[in-house]
Design a protein around this nucleic acid. Sequence first.
RNA 1: CGGGGCGUAGCGCAGCCAGGUAGCGCACCUGCUUUGGGAGCAGGAUGUCGGAGGUUCAAAUCCUCUCGCCCCGACCA
Length: 476
Amino acid sequence: MARVITPRKEDYAQWYVDVVLNAELADYAPVKGCMVIRPNGYGIWENMQRALDQMFKDTGHSNAYFPLLIPESFMKREAEHIEGFSPECAVVTIGGGKKLEEPLYLRPTSETIIWSMYRKWIQSYRDLPLLLNQWANIVRWEMRTRLFLRTTEFLWQEGHTAHATHKEAEQEALLILDVYRRFAEEYMAMPVLIGRKTEKEKFPGALITYCIEALMQDGKSLQAGTSHDLGQNFAKAFDVTYLSKEGTQELVWATSWGVSTRLVGGLVMTHGDDGGLVIPPRLAPQLVVVVPIYRTEEQKQGVLEAARRLVDGFPPSWRCVVDDRDTAKPGRKFTEWELKGVPIRVELGPRDLENGEVVLARRDIREKIQVPMDRAAEEIELLAERIQKNLFESAKKFRDEHTYVAHTWGEFEELFKTGSGFVWAHWCGDSTVEEEIKEKTKATIRLIPMEGEEEPGSCIFSGRPSTRRVLFAKAY
RNA sequence: CGGGGCGUAGCGCAGCCAGGUAGCGCACCUGCUUUGGGAGCAGGAUGUCGGAGGUUCAAAUCCUCUCGCCCCGACCA
C-alpha cells in the first residue's frame, strides 16, 4: 500500500506539498515557479472571494479593473516603490514583433496605474472618498517558489482608496485590517494577531503597513494580509490633489490593502493533518459527501435510492454528491474524501436503512455519530457549526501553546534553536538590531502590536530601553 | 545567484559503476470474485530512456555540450 502523504513530523514541507498535490488543490505548471490551481483549490478561493467581496461591499467599496501592463515611467514615479519592486518585476519589451518605445511592467501591484487614473477622477472634496477594489492576477519574479505561498503569478484582491484627510485614510486602513481579521477567524477558522510592520518589513511606498499574522503548524508565521496607510506618497508622485471646501488645493491621502491565494496555503497549514486536507465548513466547496455501502445488487438499489432521496432534501449550497462509483470500495472512498478535506461524510448502508439512520463522520476529529435519517439535514447543519468552531479553537490552542515570552537573549536564542513559534520580546526599535537578530536566529519581527498596555523593558539584544514587546517568529 | 538532487510508460522509481532484446510498483483496460476503513486473482495495453553531438559492430549505460524541473539558503504576499 503506497503511502500518499508524508507525516508532518517527518518532513513538514514535504507534507505540505503532498497535501496540495494529492488533494488536487494545485499542480506544477510547465513554467518555472508557476502553478495551476485545480478545481478543488479554486473552489476554496472562490468561496474566499465571495465572502471577502461581500465584506468589502458592505463597507462601501466597489470593484473595478485596471490594466495588467504598467508603463515603466509610472513605476519609477515613487522612489521607494520602484526600489522595492524592481528586482522582482517581469517586463515586456517587445510588442507586435517590435521593440517597445517604453517597456511595460507586468503589475507586481497596481498603485501606480491606479493613481495615474485617480489624478483624472479626483478634483474636488466631493469626489472623495474613492473606495475601489480589484480582483486580479499579479506577477512577481521570486527566486524561490512554493505552491500557493509564493508563486511567480498569483491571484489576489487589491483595494485602493483615496481620502481627504490622513485621519480618514488611517481609519480605512484599520477598518480593512479588521475585515481581514474577521475573515481569517470567522471563515478560515484561523486565529490571527494584528499589528504594524517595522520600517524594514513595510510595503515599499507606505507610511505604515498593518498586517495579520497567523502561526502555522510548523511554528512559522504566515503574513496573511496587509493594509497600508500610504500617506500622500502616491498623491505626490502622480500629482493628485483636490479642491477643499475652503477653496485650497490639497494632496489626497491613500490606502491600499490585499490578500492573496496565499490564504489557501495558510488554510492547509492551519488545519491539515496526516490524513490530508481539512477544510473549514464555511469555505468548503463541498460540505457533504455521501458514501453508499452495499453488498448485493438489491442492496445497491435500495441504498442508492435512499441516498438520492436524502441528498434531494439538502440545500444545493452544500453541493453534496453521492459517491456511487463502482470502481472503489467504501474504505477507499473514505480515505479519498478525507484526503480532500470534505468536512462531513454521510455513510449509508443496509444496516442504516434498517434502522432508519445514517452515519455522520466528521473530518476534523474523525468521529462518527448515528442520527435518524429524517433529521440528517439539521444534524449536518449543527455539526458543520461545531466543526467550524472546533477548528478555530484547536488552532487557537495550538497557537497559544506555541507562544512564548523571552526575557533574556539566551532564552530567545534557545527558543529559536530548539523549535519555532511566536516569541514576544522587547526591542529597541533599531533596524540594525532587527537585522542582526535575523542573521543570528532567522527570526524576524512579524509585528508591533497596536493595543494593550505599554510595558517598559530593555531590548533583548541591545539592552537599550523599549516601551513594549514585539512579536518575533520565523516567517514564510 | 550559491549549495544539493533529479530527468527512463500517466505517476513513483530500478537499470548506468562493469555497453549486448527496456524493467518493477501504482494507475489504466478486460473478466471473475469482492464491497461498514486504502480488495484479490487472471489476462492485457503503454516508451523518440530530457535534447544534441561523439566513441563503438552495438549506447538508457561511456565522453562532450546543452535544456528543464525540484529541494535547501539569500529576496518576498
